[in-house]
Amino acid sequence: MQMMFRCKIKPDQVEHNLKLLRAAFEEFQAVRPEGLRYATYQLDDGVTFVAFVEMAGDPGALRQLEAFQRYRSTLEERCEEPPVMTVLHEVGSYGFR
C-alpha cells in the first residue's frame, strides 16, 4: 500500500513537529521495520509537510513504534488544517526503487 499524507502545522508548533519527526526516523533506523518506506518533506512555506509511505509488510508495524506513535498521537493538535491521507496507485516510476 502506498499513501501520501499532507498536513499544515501551526507556525508555533513547527519545531516541535520536527523534533517528533526526527525521533520517529531515528526509531525507523534502529528498528528497521520490514517492508516500510517512509519519507517526509517540509515544503517551502515552512508549515506544510508531505509524507510518502509504502507498506509492503505488516501494516500494524507502525503501531508498535513508540516514537512514531508519539508523533501521530498529537498530530491533529499541532495542525492548523486537518491532515489529509490519500492512497496512491502507482502508474510508473523511475529511480525510486
Results as ranks from 00 to 15, higher is better:
E90F: 07
K10W: 00
R6T: 15
D45H: 02
Q2R: 15
P33S: 07
E76V: 06
P83H: 05
Y71Q: 14
F52C: 09
G46A: 06
V84M: 12
G57L: 02
L20F: 01
V31T: 12
E90M: 14
F25E: 05
L62S: 10
S93Q: 14
D45G: 05
T74W: 00
E80R: 03
T40P: 04
R70M: 03
F5G: 10
P33D: 05
L20R: 09
T40M: 08
R37M: 09
G95N: 03
P82E: 07
V84Y: 04
E54H: 11
L21P: 10
Q64G: 12
L21T: 12
E26S: 12
A51M: 10
V31D: 01
R72I: 05
R97V: 08
E15R: 13
E66T: 12
P59H: 03
D44G: 15
Q13E: 09
Q2E: 15
E81V: 05
R32D: 08
M4G: 13
P11T: 02
F5E: 05
F25L: 02
A23W: 01
D12Q: 07
R97T: 09
G46V: 00
T86H: 12
T48A: 01
S73C: 06
S73N: 12
Q42D: 01
T40I: 13
Q2N: 14
M1W: 06
A61W: 01
V91Y: 10
T86P: 03
H16M: 09
R72Y: 06
E34Y: 02
L62T: 10
H89M: 11
L20M: 07
L21E: 12
P82Q: 07
G95K: 06
M55L: 14
A30M: 10
Y38W: 10
E90R: 15
G57H: 09
T86W: 08
V91N: 11
H16Q: 14
